[in-house]
């Protein structure tokens, strides 16, 4: 485990815990896209199937359980919690996320490493994670301003993906371990999606103005 990988996992953990804490504490999910949260819950559910069959390490298993638990908790809060659900912006969060799920499913059926159910679902989860943030970014554009916790959430997710790319580069040069090109491309696409958000996030932070995304 290299520092990039550990830092990446920690920022990813922070992003979901920050979001869960915000929703639990202020009993509000204003600015949060339920669609993105549902997509992430699906990403984890289809990627962590091996949690019961392949034991890699305590760390690996514990982190998978935390990610599964937190992502499904966030979906539960927004859908079911009597107070939180009132602050969910149904009219604005209209991204048809099925338009993301189906192409990822088809792509996984076309491009994969092994044609086994577990591998297909794993590949599907890699593709889906790359685009899962889109409903959230669209919602942020629509609601124009970003309350800082949602901004932090997207920022931490972007940081986690960037660190994972550094981790893959590091592993390529040290362990002769190469990441399958499928994972490379999906990971790069995902990170690039954050690039413009990063630009506006830093601009607003530098000029100390409220973060505004251009329409």
């Amino acid at each position: 485990m290299n520092i990039f990988r550990l830092a990446g996992d920690m920022t990813h953990l922070a992003s979901v815990l920050v979001l869960l804490l915000k929703i639990h504490t202020i009993k509000s999910c204003a600015g949060v896209s339920l669609k993105t949260q549902e997509l992430y819950a699906l990403v984890f559910a289809t990627r962590y199937l091996d949690i019961f069959t392949d034991f890699i390490s305590v760390y690996n298993t514990v982190m998978k359980l935390i990610f599964l638990g937190s992502s499904f908790s966030i979906v539960w809060y927004i859908r079911r919690h009597k107070i939180v659900r009132r602050s969910y912006d149904k009219e604005q969060d209209t991204f048809r996320h099925y338009f993301l799920v189906l192409p990822c499913l088809l792509l996984a059926l076309l491009i994969h490493e092994k044609f086994t159910v577990k591998e297909l679902l794993w590949t599907f989860s890699i593709y889906l994670e790359a685009v899962a943030i889109l409903p959230q970014l669209v919602l942020l554009q629509r609601t124009r301003n970003i309350d800082n916790l949602t901004g932090q959430y997207v920022f931490l997710l972007g940081a986690y993906r960037s660190l994972y790319i550094l981790n893959w580069i590091y592993r390529y040069f040290t362990e002769r371990h190469f990441v399958h090109w499928i994972t490379w491309i999906a990971g790069l696409v995902q990170t690039l999606l954050y690039a413009d958000f990063f630009y506006y996030y830093f601009e607003s932070w530098k000029n100390n103005v409220k973060l505004q995304l251009p329409a």
């Binding site: 390490s57 981790n167 893959w168 371990h177 990441v179 399958h180």
Partner: peptide, 10 residues
């Protein structure tokens, strides 16, 4: 040969 895909990652 090196393992191909990062299955030990999250």
């Amino acid at each position: 040969n090196p393992k191909s895909v990062a299955k030990d990652e999250l």
